[in-house]
Design a protein around this nucleic acid. Sequence first.
RNA 1: GCCGACGUAGCUCAGUUGGCAGAGCAGGGCACUUGUAAUGCCCCGGUCGCCCGUUCGAAUCGGGCCGUCGGCUCCA
Length: 638
Amino acid sequence: MSKITLALPDGSALEVARGTTGLQVAQSLGSRLAQAAVAVQLNGQALDLNRPLETGGPFAVLTFDDEAGREVYWHSASHVMAAAVLRVFPEAKPTIGPPISDGFYYDFDVYRPFSDEDLERIQAEMNRLIRADLPFEREEVSREQALEIFADNPYKRELIEELPEDSAISLYRMGDFVDLCRGPHLPSTGRIKAFQLTSIAASYWRGDENRQSLQRIYGTAYPEAKMLQAHLDRLEEAKRRDHRRLGRELELFLFFEEAGAGLPYYLPNGAMLRQIVCDYALQQHLRRGYQLLRTPHLTRADLWETSGHAQQGYPMYYTDVEGVAYGIKPMNCPGHILLYKSKTRSYRDLPLRFFELGTVYRHERSGVLHGLLRVRGFTQDDAHIFCTPEQLTDELVGVLAFARDILAVFGFSDFEIDLSTRPEKAMGSEEIWERATAALRHALEVAGLEYHVDEGQGAFYGPKIDIKLRDALGRLWQGPTIQCDFNLPERFDVTYIGEDGREHRAVMIHRVVLAGIERFLGVLIEHYAGAFPVWLAPVQARILPITDRTLEYGREVHRRLREEGFRVELDESRGTLSAKVRDAELLRLPYILVVGDREAASGAVAVRHREQGDLGPQPLEAFVERLRVESQPPQAHP
RNA sequence: GCCGACGUAGCUCAGUUGGCAGAGCAGGGCACUUGUAAUGCCCCGGUCGCCCGUUCGAAUCGGGCCGUCGGCUCCA
């Protein structure tokens, strides 16, 4: 019998007989590992546990702790769900059902939308399938056989027809359910210990809105009930800190049906928070050599012809002014370009960094609006850097460092970075794109940042770097975007006079750090769950006089703190101290200052800290000092 | 924009075999003058999202629109 050699993750080598199954190898490595195993990986390819190993190579046992292992687990769960759906809706046509970041879904073509009651019936069927502990069985068939098996499912047939001519087509059978599937799968349905169908939604076949509308069911599954519970708790926590809910509870912002969708109105607390963020952003930009600009919201529509936005069908708003077409700006770039071009620029002037807290409006489709995270009117901390081609890389490196520093100040230090390359609908030559992409790549490498290449996802005018922020709950949010642009400088004829006395084409970088201020606030609210650090808190302290006797002293404290520039409130309401403390706690204020007869007599305040609770009385001036220190933003490394 | 669900007081939500619209919290008044997460009593508050239709009669049934939510798609 011939042998094969497996290279294990710990660096050791294991020799086994050819045809040994992955499960047997796992058992030889340890019974606990074998129990936890969901599949194995050989030469980078995931295989069923009962699949005989035919070749040697790098080998690993996959468990639920591995991303690839979770995918196998969730993919199997999606098959179980599809099987259950077919039992409840025999005429439903399954399409695709992949694992996703925290579970799985399956899309069906079905004659009517699923309801919540359907979900319960499907879950009950799933439980039956799991209790029956049905094995997943792999078989390989010819294209003709596959087309025959899925004769009544045009979706599967479409997928089969797209598979390469010579490839073996694999099917997985589980009870009387057969699905076209590359695999691998769990050995049997009984391995799914805890699952939950989480929601019903609509989708389109292949994500194309012109094709068949499908019904999607989302679910998740875990090998232990307590892991499922932890996941459901996370969802609950996410709901609890949803910025739309906190926006109302903390009186930050509102939307009005009568005023229009996607247009936020800020209440005093929200407007203050927004201002603090904007002031900080401006100050940081000035420190890094940016110059402040201001451009109008409305411009002649011609400008958007020159920029190419109009031809691209960019979703902007147009209006008519005395017979002349105007557009509300969806971007700040053309305005910055006009100001750049307002005089002849020398190479000595470059790089020129123009910054604006620029408010833009875009006609986002009604279905995509989402609280502050997706709105129709928003303000960007937008800047355009005009530089020479030689300066490009240094500027990009500087922007990356800037972004990282600023985000750290707001409590974000975990990122995922995408480099997006040329999309199909692109302007400019391949060569120009190549150059820009190479510069971004180089900047990322110089900055020592890990990134992932997102082919074809660039803007129509240039490639870009997208930085996604991971928040306190581990969720990712769109953050800074850095775009290289060789196209607008051409279209607007943006030049500088070089050392040689001749005119040269300038290079342009578009970049936002906080990106949309609205979106950033939404993310910030969820990240901090509304409990903002002192430097950001719209109200830093609330003063609670215990009785009318100390109201006047409370006013004195209020006046004193306000004079120092602190954001403080005085609670003049009547009622018990407990009730006032509760009101203030619900607003997640960093400090509550209780003033009663004892404090009034000694010029003190009794300090209650949001996290640490009652800190006892201290002299007012001591508290002023404390607040002065804590009101400073954390230091960014300049 | 598309698919589905939803829209009742400022907020959270009850309320239909079609027959005068409810609660808690919030708000106002009064009493209480209180030491760290809800003092008590009383009161105010609703074109039941908007428009059209069906009906003797519509919060309830039908249609259209607006908005919100979950997705698709898109995106800062």
